[in-house]
């Protein structure tokens, strides 16, 4: 599994396309039969307490794309705060299982684990 992270608009899906994943190959925030998924953070925010249950199905994907949402002032709203934290934790676990973790900054992919595919 390849994990791609980065801020909103950092170029994560464009980079995924260079790896051969067309837009229709990538599920948008839903778990379905497709081999790739983006906006994992939407899944976590929908139910932060159920984030742990996402680890196994996401680990079975070829490509997982998640926005980095933990930066900035810590929100006072409990659900948003939990969503940010649980998204981060889930990414930590996914990164442990991933062969490769790529972080996008300004459209530039940086391998922070493994090597760029």
């Amino acid at each position: 599994m390849i994990l791609i992270v980065g801020a909103d608009g950092a170029g994560k899906r464009s980079y995924a396309q260079t790896l051969g994943y067309a837009p229709e190959d990538i599920a948008d925030g839903v778990l379905d039969e497709r081999r790739a998924i983006c906006h994992v953070e939407k899944l976590v925010f929908a139910d932060p307490d159920a984030a742990d249950a996402l680890l196994e199905p996401l680990s079975a994907k070829e490509l997982v794309i998640c926005a980095e949402v933990g930066s900035g002032v810590i929100p006072t709203d409990t659900k948003i705060r939990l969503g940010r934290e649980r998204t981060g934790r889930l990414c930590n676990q996914l990164a442990q299982r991933a062969e490769t973790v790529v972080r996008l900054v300004c459209g530039i992919p940086m391998a922070i684990k493994g090597e760029l595919p």
């Binding site: 980095e68 933990g70 930066s71 810590i74 705060r81 930590n92």
Partner: peptide, 11 residues
């Protein structure tokens, strides 16, 4: 440094 839940404490 890093955002929330990024693993700062564990590391």
């Amino acid at each position: 440094t890093g955002g929330s839940g990024c693993g700062k404490s564990s590391y």
